[in-house]
Amino acid sequence: MNVYIRVDASLEIGTGHVMRCLTLADKLREQGAVVCFICREHPGHLWGLIEQIGYTVLKLPPPKAPLHCHWLGVPVSVDASQTKELLEGKVIDLLIIDHYSLNIEWELCLRGTVNKIMVIDDLADRKHDCDYLLDQNYLEHYQYRYLPLVPPYCKTFLGPSYVLIRSEFYKQAKRIRSGTVRRIFLFFGGIDQTNETGKALAAFLELGRQDIEIDVVVGHSNPFKNELASLCHLHDHLHFHCQVNNMAELMSHADLSIGAGGTTTWERLYLGLPSLVISIAANQEKICEGLAKEKVIKYLGKKETVTQSFLTLQLKKMIKNEDERLEMARLASLLFKDAKFNQQAMIKQILE
């Protein structure tokens, strides 16, 4: 089966969409599918990483003007036309789309070029012409959000039991994090344009807890990576990591996490890692609010409203509150009931 994935990364979009598509691509490839990516040349694109993992990238030209259509870079009709040109003469059994700026207009343009279409979404804010739709988020009434937005024949995969978790996380043994906090995992996505990593690191240092080690993880595209590395090298209990491939191992060793509300949220939850979470994009806010309501994360608010001093206070409280951390982990485990089985069933169905 030939599968093509339309997804972008950029300094504005971040890296999360590409990373979860790589997870899906790996699972499809394991079942014999041939997978290629279609990506636009935005600043901060991840072509190199995708190709390094072994996938072909069909490349759309860079935007000629400031970002348009919510991160797409060009009008929807132009993106559809350019994508059709790239796919001309190819056999496409399945086209997967993970992009907030693409909708039914784009999908209808490509419908005659492909056999089936799958959409990955989080927002439920626009109509789609698709055969499959995946939304792994836990929100109020999540089972019904897409009823007016997709065709009657569309098969939907909704909720955390379908979350795209990398294989390394399934292989990692889960553990009960009782006792004192000895190690913290800090990660705010692959780019972190506003340096929430630096804010969180400063908040932690304000505690003066040299008995607690912290793993500071950044992506290769992080514009503050050099100064963060320099700061970490000044302290023996701070450990700097850039563009790692052992995230599951680092999370597993941690007793507490500080991070954003993006795709890594599900990896932390799967491993039962208690987390202080700050939303760094508008699309993360409702997801974080929903998870906080279920008491599986401690949501501190939007990045614009979370000050360093407030983060220090919340971090101090969470370090002291073992009962809350244990309850977070217990409740998180309930979100992923049958997750591995459901994910395998989803892969089988979309490859039929």
Score class of each variant (00 low, 15 high):
residue 190 G to N: 07
residue 190 G to P: 06
residue 190 G to V: 05
residue 192 D to T: 11
residue 194 T to P: 03
residue 194 T to H: 14
residue 195 N to H: 08
residue 195 N to P: 08
residue 195 N to Q: 07
residue 196 E to A: 00
residue 196 E to T: 01
residue 196 E to R: 01
residue 197 T to M: 10
residue 197 T to A: 09
residue 197 T to C: 09
residue 199 K to E: 00
residue 199 K to S: 00
residue 200 A to Y: 06
residue 200 A to M: 04
residue 200 A to Q: 03
residue 200 A to L: 04
residue 202 A to L: 11
residue 203 A to I: 02
residue 203 A to M: 02
residue 204 F to V: 04
residue 204 F to S: 02
residue 204 F to C: 02
residue 205 L to N: 06
residue 205 L to K: 14
residue 205 L to G: 06
residue 206 E to V: 00
residue 207 L to G: 02
residue 207 L to P: 01
residue 208 G to P: 00
residue 208 G to N: 02
residue 209 R to D: 05
residue 209 R to E: 07
residue 210 Q to Y: 08
residue 210 Q to H: 10
residue 210 Q to G: 05
residue 211 D to F: 08
residue 211 D to H: 08
residue 211 D to W: 08
residue 211 D to P: 06
residue 212 I to T: 00
residue 212 I to A: 00
residue 213 E to I: 04
residue 214 I to Y: 03
residue 214 I to V: 15
residue 215 D to Q: 12
residue 215 D to S: 14
residue 216 V to M: 06
residue 217 V to S: 02
residue 218 V to D: 02
residue 219 G to A: 06
residue 219 G to T: 05
residue 219 G to N: 06
residue 222 N to T: 09
residue 222 N to A: 07
residue 223 P to Q: 07
residue 223 P to R: 07
residue 224 F to E: 11
residue 224 F to R: 04
residue 224 F to S: 14
residue 224 F to C: 07
residue 225 K to V: 03
residue 226 N to R: 10
residue 227 E to Q: 13
residue 228 L to Y: 01
residue 228 L to W: 00
residue 228 L to K: 00
residue 228 L to N: 00
residue 229 A to N: 02
residue 230 S to G: 07
residue 230 S to C: 08
residue 231 L to H: 00
residue 231 L to K: 07
residue 231 L to F: 00
residue 231 L to Q: 05
residue 232 C to K: 03
residue 232 C to D: 02
residue 232 C to W: 05
residue 232 C to Y: 05
residue 233 H to L: 13
residue 233 H to M: 13
residue 233 H to Q: 14
residue 234 L to E: 12
residue 234 L to V: 00
residue 234 L to D: 04
residue 236 D to S: 15
residue 236 D to F: 12
residue 237 H to L: 00
residue 237 H to G: 01
residue 237 H to N: 15
residue 237 H to T: 03
residue 238 L to D: 05
residue 239 H to L: 11
residue 240 F to A: 03
residue 240 F to G: 01
residue 242 C to D: 07
residue 242 C to T: 11
residue 242 C to F: 05
residue 242 C to Q: 15
residue 244 V to F: 11
residue 244 V to Q: 10
residue 244 V to W: 12
residue 244 V to T: 14
residue 245 N to R: 15
residue 245 N to K: 15
residue 245 N to Q: 15
residue 247 M to V: 13
residue 247 M to W: 08
residue 248 A to I: 10
residue 248 A to G: 11
residue 250 L to G: 08
residue 251 M to T: 06
residue 251 M to Q: 14
residue 251 M to G: 04
residue 252 S to Q: 14
residue 252 S to T: 10
residue 253 H to M: 15
residue 254 A to V: 05
residue 254 A to D: 01
residue 255 D to R: 11
residue 255 D to T: 12
residue 255 D to I: 09
residue 255 D to L: 09
residue 256 L to I: 13
residue 256 L to D: 09
residue 259 G to P: 10
residue 260 A to P: 10
residue 260 A to V: 11
residue 260 A to G: 15
residue 260 A to E: 05
residue 261 G to P: 12
residue 261 G to I: 12
residue 262 G to R: 04
residue 263 T to S: 14
residue 263 T to P: 01
residue 264 T to W: 04
residue 264 T to V: 13
residue 265 T to G: 11
residue 266 W to I: 01
residue 266 W to V: 00
residue 267 E to Y: 11
residue 267 E to V: 07
residue 267 E to H: 12
residue 267 E to D: 15
residue 267 E to F: 09
residue 268 R to D: 08
residue 268 R to E: 09
